[in-house]
């Protein structure tokens, strides 16, 4: 995209809508399926992920001229591993509840396909400000995607939403929507995660097909109208 005025806005929105890392380019699915048992865990995972993505994108784009071509990937892996260790220590100290809920998946951010992908595809070619915006967009898009997954999984799985269990500084509050005995426990299990993810992807595909069909319909109309006019003009002459 050339550097026009709306570039930064498009660059930011790209991460959330057009190129959502989870629903469009299907990356980073491992933590997405596992940590979306509850909304708080999903938001916590999204925050940690965005923090690592922003820091690694900034450092990678800062050093992009210094790191020689053939040792690019090892340097990026080291940078991302450092930030993941820092995040792990910070959560262990300040959010112990989140640390015990997410468990191994904080260290799995190192192998997350998005972080390494963004570092190599974008941050190593653009300046610091653009990479920061790109990281923010991607991170927010990933968090929104995790939130939608967790929203459905927790609503259907436990019948409501509990707050304050992981972020202990919020007063604990349990919002029960579906009456106690009627929730579907399956959605709290791993199988439910697959179903919710599959259904969300199916709806996105359906919307896209619907849009394309509508555009094709419009083009057909356009062609028929043009053919009509060409016939009339031919007739009056």
């Amino acid at each position: 995209m050339k550097r026009n005025k709306g570039y930064t806005k498009a660059n930011f929105l790209k991460g959330i809508l057009i190129e959502n890392p989870l629903f469009v380019s299907i990356l980073g699915t491992c933590p997405a399926l596992a940590t979306t048992k509850s909304i708080e865990a999903a938001i916590g995972m999204g925050l940690l992920f965005t923090f690592v993505l922003i820091c690694s994108n900034i450092l990678v784009s800062l050093l992009r001229k210094l790191i020689p071509e053939e040792v690019r990937t090892p340097a990026y892996i080291v940078i991302i591993a450092t930030f993941v260790t820092i995040v792990k220590m910070l959560t262990q100290a300040f959010l112990p509840e989140l640390y015990s809920t997410l468990g191994v998946f904080i260290s799995l951010i190192v192998v997350n396909c998005i972080v390494l992908g963004r570092a190599e595809a974008y941050a190593s070619k653009n300046n610091v400000f653009d990479s920061l915006i790109d990281a923010l967009g991607m991170g927010l898009g990933y968090m929104v995607a995790l939130f939608t997954m967790a929203f459905f999984r927790e609503l259907l799985g436990t019948g409501g939403f509990t707050f304050g269990k992981i972020f202990t500084f919020i007063p604990t509050y349990k919002l029960q929507i579906i009456p106690k005995g009627y929730e579907i426990k399956l959605f709290q299990n791993p199988a439910g995660a697959f179903i919710v993810f599959g259904l969300i992807l199916a709806t996105i595909a359906c919307i896209k097909n619907r849009k394309e069909a509508y555009k094709a319909y419009l083009d057909k109309q356009e062609k028929i109208r043009k053919a009509q006019e060409a016939k009339n003009v031919g007739g009056n002459k």
Partner: peptide, 10 residues
């Protein structure tokens, strides 16, 4: 040298 600097700073 660059890799050494990266490792040291991390």
């Amino acid at each position: 040298i660059t890799l050494g600097v990266i490792a040291a700073s991390s």
